[in-house]
Design a protein around this nucleic acid. Structure first.
Lengths: 334, 334
DNA sequence: ATGAAAGCGCTAACAA
DNA sequence: TTGTTAGCGCTTTCAT
């Protein structure tokens, strides 16, 4: 069932059918009614490929994510999909993993499908910042379609970003801990990404401001798995810290487990702050104080930016920053 | 940059370029080399829409999910995407919500994009089973492309399914509790879906087998939010149960929180079993015994089924069942 | 307000 | 082994 069939059945030309489909006003009411009724009873649906061939787009947008089974990523994708769907776009999803090769290949698969734009979700796409070469493939992609990085900054023509104020948030929570008398604050992270670096910077600046010397042994890289973190902390010969700030809730929960195992009471002996305000933070006991990075607001903002870009309006500011919010629960005394 | 440009630059016809692109062996090595080098240096990528128009597919598969920010769904999508990508398919993602209208509209958006097949993830798509009308739209879709329901059974031509043995699993855990002397087992669920019904049936058959009368007040519907569940249990005038089986970890964690609030010790006073073996089950304290429904195996199997379907091999058995696995932790004494 | 016809870029059947 | 050409189904001028 194609447009020719419909045209014939309705006794009009294919051009008229096309006009009806696209809601053109240059069709008489009578003709429109007739065509619509034929379409209705025949169940006709236009062939997107033919449409795409003509106009160059089928209104789909690529979403690249390292790992959709991560709570944070999943939530972001959820918001993106909702907003995009509302605006008539479909989502092509790619799970790239954290390796550069996977990112590149998945990105090209999406590009090959002629998406109208790309979302890269997660600061892993911003690379470590050591070399621009890490993100060259993103700029190359941006030569074809607008790219919006969620929660990571990549510089380049046609590359936009929406991030949360990770540095400030980490500065805030660290400062709060210091104000409550903590001086040996363990910083736990699982990543070297842009956002991990931002968080690190926030942590360090809080220490510096308070005149507390930085201790290398209080800055650890760990995998983001509850038991792994717990065991690493348990294996420390001389655990010497009175607070923990983590770059993800999962890591923080590991610290909670560590406290439970070693008889440390929370928050008296050990204060703990998580990140992302995920369901993990409220599943554990005591429940985690956590930084809410406003995923929903960021994603909504990112889609707004993108839609404006696609509608060829005036250029957008290249990035937006949404401040984080601290959700206080029982693993801290502030 | 299109196939004509490449053909001209390589001094061959478009047919030859097309052959090279599709890896046909009916091209001389010399010609192939030449064409490939031109393609390489020009960065040519075939236009999928034109391809699609010709052959009727661009190798994309629709994945419909009620809510991707749910841990279980996200994991399933992750596995599906991985398997499909490996086999050269892209994924069009739709988040439909739990309302019929959303399901139908999202499903049509995917169909309109001419996907080769559809995955429906989650037993919500199987409806309540009260009326076939609830799932008619699925059968209608199946008239166009193969449909595979993950974790829910829908009957119909060209509708396949991959489910886990929920009924048996629930029977097993309930029986184990009974064997450990528990007689007042609270069943908590947040859904009326196919899988919820299966789980209910397992629970009931374990009671029946043990000759324990069913008590309506011990079968509750609750929202799947930790604090909500906790508060509902706390508000019970006369909480009279010595074990809890829940159809999701989030719900079970709510019961754990309830126990903590009311001074019940786990598992002595109250045994608790969760479902899905998610990270929540290991975040809470004590850690939850949970039913692992083998998402990965189910998804892998589902993709296998689908690929066979798409490659026009002999018809598949309409459904596969993967047995669940009980992961024992510290909220039970078995 | 409506129709005719020229693309859009590719695949595949057929010719050579 | 290679080239020619007829679709694939739609959009969009350009006429009328």
């Amino acid at each position: 069932m194609n447009i020719y069939d419909i045209a014939e059945m309705a006794g009009v030309s294919i051009a008229t059918v096309s006009r009806v489909m696209s809601g053109s006003d240059k069709v008489s009411d009578k003709t429109r009614k007739k065509v619509l009724s034929v379409i209705e009873e025949s169940g006709y649906t236009p062939n997107v490929f033919a449409q795409g061939l003509g106009v160059g787009t089928i209104h789909s947008i690529g979403i690249l994510v390292p790992n959709i089974s991560d709570l944070y990523m999943a939530e972001a994708v959820s918001f993106l999909e909702n907003e995009l769907q509302k605006n008539g776009y479909n989502c092509l999803l790619g799970c790239s993993g954290f390796e550069l090769s996977g990112k590149e290949s998945h990105l090209h698969m999406l590009l090959d499908k002629r998406v109208d734009a790309l979302f890269l979700v997660g600061s892993t796409y911003a690379g470590s910042g050591k070399s621009d070469a890490e993100t060259d493939y993103i700029r190359a992609a941006a030569a074809q379609v607008p790219v919006v990085v969620i929660n990571g900054a990549v510089k380049g023509e046609n590359v936009h970003s929406a991030v949360c104020g990770d540095r400030q948030a980490m500065y805030d929570v660290t400062s709060s801990l210091i104000q409550r008398g903590r001086k040996r604050i363990l910083f736990l992270t699982d990543s070297h990404s842009y956002s991990a670096q931002e968080k690190t910077a926030g942590y360090l600046s809080a220490l510096e401001e308070a005149g507390i010397p930085v201790r290398e042994d209080l800055m650890m890289h760990v995998p983001n798995r509850i038991h792994a973190v717990r065991d690493i902390l348990l294996s420390l010969p001389d655990p010497d810290f009175d607070a923990v700030v983590a770059t993800d809730d999962g890591i923080a929960v590991g610290a909670v487990k560590f406290a439970a195992r070693t008889g440390r009471s929370i928050p008296q002996d050990l204060q703990i702050v998580g990140y992302n305000n995920s369901s993990l933070s409220v599943a554990c006991e005591p429940e985690l104080t956590s930084v809410d990075n406003r995923t929903e607001d960021i994603c909504r903002g990112a889609v707004t930016v993108l839609l404006r870009l696609l509608s060829e309006k005036e250029p957008m500011p290249p990035s937006m920053v949404v401040p984080c919010r601290i959700v206080r629960r029982r693993t801290t005394d502030f």
